[in-house]
Nucleic acid binder design. Structure first.
Lengths: 105, 105
DNA sequence: ACATCATTTAGATATTTAGCTAAATGTAGT
DNA sequence: ACTACATTTAGCTAAATATCTAAATGATGT
């Protein structure tokens, strides 16, 4: 759980997770959303993997990252409960607040 | 919101918040719960203050820290909603003596 | 075999962070 | 005014972090 919070402490990584919520993406696609180099992004992906927040699948020469929602959810819920807060999936199918529909390129 | 997540990325600070949920405490009382020096704790308090997660009130020669639940709640909720998660106050739970409404400084 | 593409690893650097001890500040009591 | 107490500030160090460029790895297509 500490690793999850460390991972969440960086805005780039939080945004990566947010992008992955819409759908899995390759490392390159994700990188295109940020103004930093690919090796830097690769390091961010490694932190997210170490926190078990994402999983990677190699397909040909691309690597597709997928968010592990249950891990994020459990960490958030576990923490929230320490403060008498409850967390539950928002009735799904409905996009979350602030969700935009992203276009693939 | 970034400052809140940075603040939450350290286990000592998360535990400070958890302790403060039960009731406000002085800097010294809080420090007694951790195996680090008081100056180090003081630095942690400063980070929590900067994130607006706690407020400090001087009374005589002690300084009492109080959690700002609404700030924590808003940050958690705001983030959770990006992922289609909803967060709401748990029905009852431990009431928490000082668990009340705070306003900005 | 070779060139190309996607991604990661290596190696370097600058900044931030968590920790310490010692000193300064502010308040209370005598 | 002096002493004691509670807390923060100053100054330091070691470790972690975010970033970069250049090089290595691995897969595809010619």
């Amino acid at each position: 759980m500490n690793r999850v919070f460390k991972a969440l402490s960086d805005p780039t990584r939080r945004e990566v997770l947010r992008l992955l919520r819409k759908s899995p993406m390759t490392a390159g696609e994700l990188s295109d959303h940020f103004p930093v180099s690919k090796p830097t992004m690769s390091a961010h992906f490694a932190v997210l993997r170490e926190a078990d927040l994402v999983e990677a699948e190699r397909n040909g020469r691309t690597i597709t990252y997928r968010i592990k929602m249950s891990v994020l959810e459990d960490a958030l819920l576990g923490f929230a409960q320490l403060f008498g807060l409850d967390l539950h999936p928002d009735e799904d199918g409905a996009p979350g607040v602030g969700d935009a529909v992203e276009e693939s390129r």
